[in-house]
Amino acid sequence: MTARVSFEVNGQRRDLELDTRTSLLDALREHLKLTGTKKGCDHGQCGACTVIVDGRRINSCLTLAVMHEGAKVTTIEGLGTPEAMHPMQAAFVKHDGYQCGYCTPGQVCSAVAVLEEIRAGVPSHVTPDLGDRPKVTAEELRERMSGNICRCGAYSNIVDAMTEVAGSRA
């Protein structure tokens, strides 16, 4: 069974007719050929498929494409290009916040969204006082990024990259 769905991806309107079983992840990778978003587990366990939908990061493998009529989706391709990288992408390159590169688009999308979440005052499990605004600390970044697995183990460098981006923006 197929259904029509329209949403905006990286500022561009896309109209698709999809098998209703198609995940948002597969709609991006297989139908729109936006392969920057990665499939690591297809079960919401690794975070490689993280994209930003209506300003909020989600695992695109855990949601069906047809549920996103009218949504605004930002994928890694919408953040920057090799010639004009987003500051977070540039910081990942500078701090070697990756190795194999497969989890990287998800880490970058998460990292961009995490800094927005902190700026918006959204607390986390490690926020010491819910009455205070959360701060950009290594502990906050590690907690909020823990849905994005990096088997190569670039965590320490990713925190450095995020800290630099957060600092330069403050």
Partner: peptide, 21 residues
């Protein structure tokens, strides 16, 4: 030196096996 393929990885433009449309 920064990785020479780094910008491809950081922007999701490095092609992995399943992505060879």
């Amino acid at each position: 030196a920064d990785r020479i393929e780094g910008p491809l990885k950081a922007t999701g433009t490095a092609p992995y096996a399943y992505e060879r449309h």
